[in-house]
């Protein structure tokens, strides 16, 4: 379970708020989509969820563990796929996966089983002996995904996971997300692809200018905004925000 309580992140002396008093809760077994326009605060929120950034105020709880107070135990629960998959270019795919397994304390048996399973699933077996520097963007994304799943995390967080993936890989990833949810894990991801969020997510949150502007199931959002689809809701809410500011 992920819980954000009144979370705010300010940058610099000017006090620009990238995230402004954000409160939301993602239950176990939920596939949660986090959407919003560019610069809305999605990545900053994800960075706070994963312990990369410390909130200026507020609390982030992962299965009840405060990530600021007990970062190590909180991080152990997470599998994180970063945006753009900036990995360690000089390592081979296999070295990277072993590195991640060592860091998360994955046993030799479990890493063998998981690596076999996911490398074959994402069709990366042939390339795993090569340096990451030689990988395409999609291959990096796949490798980062495998690295995040090796330790069987209870919470899976992804920043723009579909970026760079070919249709087949995107399909496989979506299936894996559903499978993880079915096992009672929490899946949280940000995306710009509204179609994916619409079809995949059990619940969706929309953020704009650092503030939560909508949250609920697709049906709840549609009825609240009197819209036919997520795209309409997105345009309406982000435009309204913009117009209000003007």
């Amino acid at each position: 379970m992920i819980e954000l309580i009144d979370v705010t992140k300010e940058y610099g002396k000017s006090g620009v708020r990238a995230v402004d008093q954000l409160t939301m809760k993602v239950e176990k077994g939920e596939l949660f989509g986090f959407i919003g326009p560019n610069g809305a605060g999605k990545t900053t929120t994800i960075k706070m969820l994963t312990g990369i950034l410390i909130p200026t105020s507020g609390t982030v709880l992962l299965d009840g563990v405060d990530i600021v107070r007990d970062p190590i135990n909180a991080k152990k629960m997470i599998g994180f796929v970063p945006d753009g998959a900036d990995l360690f270019d000089r390592l081979t795919g296999l070295e990277y996966l072993n590195f991640m397994a060592d860091i998360y304390g994955v046993s030799a048996e479990q890493r063998k089983q998981k690596m076999d399973e996911y490398l074959q699933l994402f069709e990366l077996t042939d390339a795993v002996g090569n340096r990451i520097a030689s990988y395409s963007k999609g291959m990096r994304q796949k490798l980062a995904t495998i690295g995040a799943l090796l330790h069987d995390p209870t919470i899976w967080i992804m920043d723009e996971p579909m970026m760079g993936l070919d249709p087949k890989a995107a399909f496989l990833l979506k299936e894996e997300m559903k499978r993880q949810c079915a096992q009672g894990k929490t899946v949280f991801f940000s995306t710009h692809v509204l179609d994916v969020a619409e079809k995949l997510c059990t619940r969706i949150a929309m953020i704009n200018h650092g503030k939560l502007v909508a949250e609920g199931t697709l049906e709840e959002l549609k009825s609240a905004e009197h819209a036919a689809n997520l795209e309409q809701i997105f345009l309406e809410l982000t435009e309204t925000e913009g117009a209000e500011e003007e």
Partner: peptide, 14 residues
């Protein structure tokens, strides 16, 4: 570490 600092920070290592 450059841009990979985020990845390092997300690891469960103090």
């Amino acid at each position: 570490e450059g841009r990979r600092h985020g990845l390092m920070m997300s690891l469960p290592v103090d």
